[in-house]
Design a protein around this nucleic acid. Structure first.
Lengths: 106, 106
DNA sequence: AAACTAGGTTACTTAATAGTTACTAGGATA
DNA sequence: TATCCTAGTAACTATTAAGTAACCTAGTTT
């Protein structure tokens, strides 16, 4: 939380999960912890620059954890943090609505 | 629905409510139907151009209704459509998370 | 010794998003 | 008759987000 001055509370949500990629990333991470390269494969359109950038922001906002294995070549795993877990129902319901929409039920 | 080719269903959700303004607009409309100028007042940062643009897109996606009163000066009211109503739980839960976040419970 | 690896970073370019200003309609009000 | 009102639109500019390509690290395999 930074600006901490919102006209309406949902702005706090958008500050954290807004933008083109974050919900996508989190929807993958809510199922399992994933490596950088796994996320890249799962989200083919994203570039490594954007992926790095978005992961850093999510980490800074306390939503995900970043665990670096001390080995070469590098291995880094990302997972939902405890705070990130509180987003699970948000993500689940967004996913569910997308499914409904695709099946023409919305 | 246009591209209709998603890697993951939540992309269908993001296609409809993604971007900087739509969730904000919808969070206002979920409580009551509103006029253009009321929305503008409720979302002070938005310009009329962006508001118009976002409202048109939401209308084209079938999420909101636009009702024009035949009078001068113009009066136009926006409200959630039936399909828009199916987004209510998504919006509610996003709002709720924002409140939690602001109160340091997330 | 060269090449490969994963997970990046940097500098640069391009595309998308958003803002600004001026303008419109046409009846109601001063 | 001049001005106000709301809900816009149009042309243009600025800002921000995103993409591209090259480079880095340092142990492991060829």
């Amino acid at each position: 939380m930074k600006g901490n001055h919102y006209n309406i509370p949902v702005e706090a949500t958008l500050e954290v999960i807004g933008g083109k990629w974050k919900v996508l990333i989190l929807c993958h991470l809510k199922n399992k912890k994933m490596r950088f390269s796994e996320l890249q494969k799962s989200i083919p359109q994203i570039t490594k620059k954007m992926l790095t950038q978005q992961l850093r922001e999510l980490e800074n906002d306390g939503i995900i954890n970043r665990y670096v294995y001390q080995q070469v070549p590098p291995k880094v795993e990302y997972s939902l943090s405890d705070i990130g877990e509180t987003l699970r129902e948000v993500l689940d319901i967004m996913c569910a609505w997308g499914e409904k929409r695709i099946n023409n039920q919305a």
